[in-house]
Amino acid sequence: MEKFVFFGGKGGVGKTTVSAAYALKSARDGLETLVVSTDPAHSTSDLFDQQFGDDPQPVEGIDHLHAMEIDPDEEVERHLMDIKRSLGSQVSPSMVNEIDRQIEMAHQTPGAYESALFDRFVDVMRNADEYDRVVFDTSPTGGTLRLLSLPDFLQGWIDRLLHKRKKSVDLYEKAAIGNQEPRRMMKGDPIIARLQDRKEMFEFAGETLRERAAFFLVVNPDELSIRETRRAVDRLEESGLSVRGLAVNKLTPAPDPDENGRGATFLRQRVETERERLETLRETFSQPVVAEIELRIAEVKGNLLDDVADELDIPVAAEVPASDD
């Protein structure tokens, strides 16, 4: 299994539970594991009954397991403040207001949240040397999975900007007559340097996601969730990311055969429908169903998480040289 494992799916299907269970399984196997949650609802903290923050922290009572929770809003704010700080030191006061407006605007666009999240993901992936496995519990916003498929697109965009900037600086250099200092110079141009940095970041992200990451989608046995999953699979495959399997969560438990009350009949029929849905999943998706997790009576926590971890049929062993495919 790859070092980076992503769990996705629409809101409420149980991504946090499944990712935590998989992380637990990996940790139990002796791998240094980090589970990264991006859910603003802080459900990972609830799950382990421990408050996690922006930095990885060991999970109490479980060896080899670490957790962190990313808050994209905080990241957007931090990014904004960083720029404003360098603005203060670089720009004359008369222009600050003008440029300030532009910066504020950029941070209110709908894409800012996703970009911030993406930045943090890349940051975590870049600094994950001490872990053997990093499990990402992606937030339910449709944008996250989309963003994971974006590095190529963004890289192309940055490339274009880089090309334009180089061209104009080159022309300025040519336009400087004799000993005159050109208005812009290629050497030490901060814009080119920054764009280059970003380009490298997107390159790293694209390569890591394509070659060192595995994606799993969490599905509930209902039509809407299945449809949603089909879209997500298509989208990810389109951008060259491989979806390894589907984890079916919240299956209805079957009643004992001798029970015949109203509740039991309901459950029996429900189980029957879900069996058909599972059948559809198996037949129409090329990805295998890697887990069938039954609905629990209460929120999955503590010992229950162990049970769920046992139900996951996802290999945990760290990256082995591909031999079978």
């Binding site: 990014h79 720029i83 222009m95 950029a106 666009t109 894409g111 970009s115 900007l161 764009l195």
Partner: peptide, 19 residues
């Protein structure tokens, strides 16, 4: 709307003259 405005905003402090 631009998909990269979040990233290009980083350039603004260095683009005073250009801006």
């Amino acid at each position: 709307p631009s998909p990269v405005s979040y990233y290009t905003a980083e350039l603004l402090p260095y683009l005073e003259d250009e801006f």
